[in-house]
Design a protein around this nucleic acid. Structure first.
Lengths: 107, 107
DNA sequence: TTAGTTCATCGCAAATATACGATTAATAAC
DNA sequence: GTTATTAATCGTATATTTGCGATGAACTAA
């Protein structure tokens, strides 16, 4: 969609946080993350039982979370076990935390 | 796009955080928020000078941030001064903070 | 009233996201 | 080998997002 001639410059943090936010911008992905975080389940099959969506759709959302680095998958054929990627989780937490540290009041 | 017969239930927090995340999912909106937060500028006109995008596009992004409640606008004809909505800012901060509080490790 | 300023909104085009069923790939069990 | 299981990917339809220029609305200044 980029149609401006001058390409807009964003900071590394802006790009990273936008990418993370996009991954977090769908309620089902938040639900999946919470399920993985609370350890209620880890295998894809359990997710498809809990969440009333087509298996392909769940898989697509898992891929989105994978691409954002928020989760990681371990293959235990023929199943795949997904877990929170704790390293990226902490990075994300730090990024959002830093972002919301207010600087001033608006007068 | 909702095509499942059984409508999926989400918690209030999941809905709220997804909405907030969507508002934060574009780098230019993050840049705008940071500018407003750091008080570098507050009037729309200043944003359109700093950010090389069409005025209508900036206005559209401001509306997205308004709709998410993250900013508020004061009319000073013919200008409009935008500020961070501190109340919603704190709520958002708390929501993300809570979300990223890890519960367990994945073994 | 007329012109100027500022910003929102409209209308459109293109890109991206979302959801599904069907298919494919990989592996285990036989 | 064949079959069953699990999950990823493909193809497609629809919805949403993003961007722009043009226009409109609201107000000021002359």
């Amino acid at each position: 969609m980029q149609r401006t001639l001058s390409v807009i410059e964003y900071s590394v943090d802006e790009e990273a946080m936008a990418t993370l936010s996009k991954a977090l911008s769908h309620p089902v992905r938040l639900k999946i993350l919470k399920l993985l975080d609370s350890h209620v389940c880890c295998f894809t099959g359990e997710l498809t039982e809990i969440i009333p969506m087509a298996q392909s759709t769940i898989s697509q959302h898992l891929k989105a979370l994978l691409d954002a680095g928020l989760i990681q998958g371990e293959i235990h054929p023929p199943k795949v076990r997904y877990c929170i990627n704790r390293e990226q989780w902490l990075k994300a937490s730090a990024l959002f935390g830093k972002f919301f540290l207010s600087e001033k009041e608006c007068d």
